[in-house]
């Protein structure tokens, strides 16, 4: 059994707003100096889902990441956490791609890996927040896709997934192979241990270029016209008092004045 988990490196989403800059001409975010990228948080949840399948069923876990310039040191975290192999699909031409082109390239890599039973992705990436790639991978491979998983169980060649719905959750079944997109409700990625770090050094890491893959044509479907930081005009009225009681009472009075109670 073999599972693939797709990992995107992103600008740290926890970075302060003040450090977030855009180059308006290039319509690109300017990464602040000295701030390394991180694994997209939902992709960490996806890796955890994959590692749980490994724990319970002895699957081999292959992490793949795609981009124009990948930070190996950051992506090695997947190996340290327990993935068996890391594939970096890296080429200067893999820049500013839309979700469908991204899915096309990832599928070429998944086909090259061969015999994949489950593909895990995060529900959406922390930079463009689209949540398209997982479904597009499944469509391209012609296999089912279950989105927003919070629990994944496997039995024989079937998966049973609890997926988040608007008012609760649903239990969805599918036969393998399939794609599963993972929500943070599944649980955080396990801690990286010292043993994990030293084991990671001996694990295989491959770099595949565009020429190594049988890429389909990837015409852009959307065009970015503008990227900008919206102006914010809110000024917070901080309500003070000699004691917490006094401040609290003043807050209540202020809201009453504004007819908000």
């Amino acid at each position: 059994m073999q599972v693939v988990v797709c990992i995107k490196q992103v600008l740290d989403p926890e970075m302060p707003r003040s450090a977030f800059k855009i180059d308006p001409k290039e319509k690109r975010v300017v990464p602040p100096r000295g701030t390394p990228p991180v694994l997209s948080p939902f992709d960490e949840n996806a890796l955890e889902a994959a590692l749980r399948v490994k724990d319970e069923h002895g699957a081999k876990v292959v992490a793949i990441s795609m981009g124009s310039t990948l930070a190996q040191a950051v992506l090695r975290k997947t190996l340290a956490a327990g993935a068996d192999e890391l594939i970096l699909v890296e080429d200067p031409m893999f820049q500013d791609l839309d979700s469908f082109a991204t899915a096309g390239i990832l599928v070429s890599a998944i086909r090259k890996i061969g015999d994949v039973d489950i593909v895990f992705t995060g529900r959406q990436a922390a930079d463009w927040d689209s949540g398209i790639t997982g479904c597009a991978i499944a469509e391209e491979l012609g296999i089912p896709c279950i989105t927003l998983a919070r629990k994944v169980e496997m039995n024989d060649r079937r998966v049973r997934v609890e997926r988040l719905s608007a008012d609760g959750f649903e239990i969805v079944q599918a036969t393998l192979p399939c794609v599963i997109t993972v929500d943070s409700a599944l649980g955080e990625l396990r801690q990286v241990t010292l043993q994990g770090l030293s084991a990671a050094r001996k694990k295989p890491l491959h770099v595949w270029k565009a020429a190594d893959l049988h890429l389909p044509p990837l015409p852009p479907r959307c065009e970015l016209l503008d990227l900008y930081i919206p102006k914010r005009e809110t000024v917070c009225e901080v309500i003070k008092g000699e004691t917490p009681e006094e401040a609290s009472a003043r807050l209540a009075d202020r809201l009453h004045e504004e007819r908000l109670l």
Binding site: E237, S248, A249
Partner: peptide
Amino acid sequence: FSVAHYGVVGDYREIVPPFMQRVKQIL
């Protein structure tokens, strides 16, 4: 505090109960 309209700085355990008390008086 950079996105709210009104703010109180403090531990919620010390803010929410007296806030509720005052709201009860008002209402």
